[in-house]
């Protein structure tokens, strides 16, 4: 469904130019879940945003390559097509739910905005919003839908974000560090919710994270990114069990293991890589 070919993204021009993504290749099939793992600054979030050209241009510059969604190159699309793609075909859940929801609009307004944009066939917006909220496990959705984001807890806010993303039945959900800002117990709930929703809807998912610990059991495949390139790619079990690249090995050794007594976590020595 998605094919990224030889994609390079720069920030800035001339002397200030920084390469965020270098000659990257990646594909996601229908219904497949691909995890992109890497440290901050490795280009994983930039890749996620580039799928619908959400990066602010400038400073972002797509220097080489193409991004094919069902065979159409995103980098050549006009604004109208891009807007149909965003939210309609590819939807996003971001890291920080407290700042990613607009503080001055009710969650009803924000979810219905997405529905109005992409699903002109829906006759009863209220019922649809309610069912979306119900789907992500919000209790009493009818009562809560006129709340403002600040009236909800962090976990609830992230559920609303997911509901908003799923409201338009996307074929791909890009979850960019969806649990990083949340408490550990809530993290597990949100991941479980995502897994269930994926099974229900059959959508594909791109799970962007720095944490190898959360991808087992949810991702079919994993791509490890380092300094803007994919350094290792494979089936999740294979990579977890038998990592090839030194960076992958280092990342996996960062997962705290239950029952293991370790005084400190291994630091990744970039000079060795």
């Amino acid at each position: 469904m998605i094919e990224i070919k030889n994609l390079s993204i720069d920030f800035g021009r001339g002397a200030d130019r920084v390469q965020a993504v270098r000659a990257m290749n990646l594909s996601i099939a229908k219904g497949e879940t691909v995890a992109i793992v890497g440290e901050s600054g490795s280009g994983k979030s930039v890749t996620g945003l580039s799928l619908t050209r959400l990066l602010p241009e400038p400073p972002a510059v797509y220097s080489t390559g193409e991004i094919l969604v069902d065979g159409n190159d995103v980098l050549k699309m006009g604004t109208t097509d891009l807007r149909k793609l965003r939210g309609g075909k590819i939807a996003y859940v971001f890291q920080e739910p407290s700042t990613s929801l607009n503080p001055v609009f009710t969650i009803h307004t924000q979810i219905s905005e997405a529905i109005r944009l992409h699903r002109t066939d829906v006759s009863s917006i209220d019922a649809e919003v309610e069912s979306c909220l119900d789907m992500v496990g919000i209790v009493n959705p009818r009562g809560r839908m006129h709340d403002y984001p600040h009236q909800l807890s962090g976990g609830m806010q992230q559920r609303v974000m997911i509901a908003m993303a799923l409201a338009c039945r996307p074929q791909l959900l890009v979850a960019d560090e969806p649990t990083t800002a949340l408490d550990v117990t809530i993290q597990a709930q949100i991941l479980e919710q995502l897994r269930m929703l994926k099974a229900q809807t059959g959508m594909a998912m791109m799970l962007i994270t720095h944490n190898f610990g959360i991808i087992g059991g949810i991702a079919d495949r994993v791509a490890v990114m380092f300094r803007g390139s994919v350094v290792e790619e494979g089936r999740t079990e294979d990579v977890l069990r038998n990592p090839q690249h030194a960076y992958t090995q280092a990342l996996i050794s960062c997962i705290p293991q239950l029952g293991q007594r370790r005084r400190r976590l291994t630091a990744i020595d970039h000079a060795l890589l």
Binding site: L49, T52, L54, T79, R83, K84, L85, R86, G87, G88, A91, Y92, F94, E96, T99, S100, L101, N102, P103, E113, A114, L117, H118, M161, M164, C168
Partner: peptide, 15 residues
């Protein structure tokens, strides 16, 4: 530059 603007754009809202 706020996050919620990115969210809105990611929904397909026009500029």
């Amino acid at each position: 530059g706020q996050d919620y603007i990115r969210t809105a754009r990611a929904k397909g809202v026009s500029s």
